[in-house]
Design a protein around this nucleic acid. Sequence first.
RNA 1: GGGAGUGUAGCUCAGUCGGUAGAGCAGCGGCCUUUUAAGCCGUAGGUCCAGGGUUCGAGUCCCUGCGCUCCCA
Length: 537
Amino acid sequence: MTESPHTPPTPETPHDQTMHPLEAQRRANREAAVSAGLNPYGVRVDGLVTLAEAGSRYDEGADQDQKANGKAEGFADRRPVVKVAGRVMLLRDNGKLLWINLRDASGDLQVAVSQRDCAEPGFAIAKSIDMGDIVVAEGPLTKTKTGEVTVWATSIVPGAKCLVPPPEKHAGLSDHELRYRMRYVDMWANPETTRVFQLRSRIVSLLRRLLDGLGYMEVETPMLQTLAGGAAARPFKTHMNALDISLFMRIAPELYLKRLLVGGLPRVYEINRNFRNEGLDARHNPEFTMLELYHAFGDMETVMGVTESLTREAAAAVAKEQGLPHSGAFTLPFGELAIDYGSPFMRVRYGDLFERVLGVKMSDRGAVARLAAEKRVKAKDEKGIALDHWLIVNNLFEELAEPTLDHARPTFITHYPSAISPLTRPNREDPTVADRADLFIGGMEIAPHYTELNDPDVQASKFKEQLAGLDDEESTFRNFDEDFVNALKVGMPPAGGMGLGIDRLVMLLTNQRTIRDVVLFPLMRPLESQQDAPTDA
RNA sequence: GGGAGUGUAGCUCAGUCGGUAGAGCAGCGGCCUUUUAAGCCGUAGGUCCAGGGUUCGAGUCCCUGCGCUCCCA
């Protein structure tokens, strides 16, 4: 990669040999603060208000009064005085009057620095400011003749020097790679980025508040696990020196949360990171956030109700925040869709949808085989061996039936075939279908729901079946969880369980098309200069 | 894993048929006390992702690799 101010210097490339001229210039400009006796990196400042708050304190009457009578003998200026800090986004230097547009996480505000009204060294500091610097300004609020609320500075002090040239001032930072690698620039160059993460934070705290109100207790279970259970995914493996054992980053908290039901907690949830050592695309980041919850003496229906109300409440909060309708059949935009979160979520049985779209019963082996051939849906594995009937059914379902769902209506698909839900409890009335329901919104799978298996003997045999089907590679990280089966032997109450993908939910509610836009620091391939030296392990 | 696109100044982007590397913003030197992407005059800034090939000549064409983006599995 070519040398640029955006390439962090490494020990092997000292500053003085690689410094970009634009950085050198900014270092020189930094000296203005030093020679004025100020620290270019600032000091503690008390009494700051956000830029949005400062702007809202503008007093029209006091401003008019000042403009009319300001020069009169003994006139008292009643304009509110504010102290603000922000990053310099725009800078217009008219010689003896400078216009500075500041930005913070709350918004933007203009500051005027007049040689006549700003005490030294403030004016000298203002003259040395570079775009991207953080400055602190204080002064009364006024409106310019074009009507813009402005802090008329009586003092300016440095907050922090920006030695790296900021992005272009109108086009901003649009290069996706740079945006993700330098989120700390993206966040102020593109205020929309900060807004998404503010919403994400509010959504997650609302979910916690709602769950707490419903009597669920938040818990934290191991992220480092000796067995990577609870889902079918490849784990990240690490090593613990003290005990000289292998550990896995968890792929799901499920088996620990269920142990807590055995321990007597009636309703538990965890909102935390899972890690899966798999692909990386618009909907997958190797670490992602999941809300997983369990409800003792509930079932699939119980937790479906919880998911529906959590989703609706979160959507309503986002809609309200944006000044959109948030009751009745209200919607939020997602790409081209207007997703209806207000109406009751749709429900469709897997088998009914299959039959309606494909015209044959999923249990009709002959018809399914003919249909797979006709529709050219995968019916053989890599070795050319015919797939199991139910796998063909699922391929047909995922390719042809699932896409026909109305993406603008959140929909639960229920009654999955037991044959493709190996770890799930079979339905009491019809054991060929499983007590499992998946919520789909906007074409994305958001949350699976289960009536949990709590018979230790059934669980043990399902573990064994699963292990028998593993290839050599899978066998290296999957194992029989004796202790979990032992917990079930102690006795787990019947329960409903649910797992809600927080990143995908946030994507939907904030109208972002990729998971990288809702994860603050998405995983990126490291730059060569930032790679760790190879280790022995 | 497959396909498509893309990589040029700090940033955002042009670069025609293969013929001297371009613009805007940012920067630097001036002027300017009500600007809104301020304006005006002047000025500097390049490993065209990397390596190889074709050619008198490659940012441009070909090959290989790498990064990133999008789509598909």
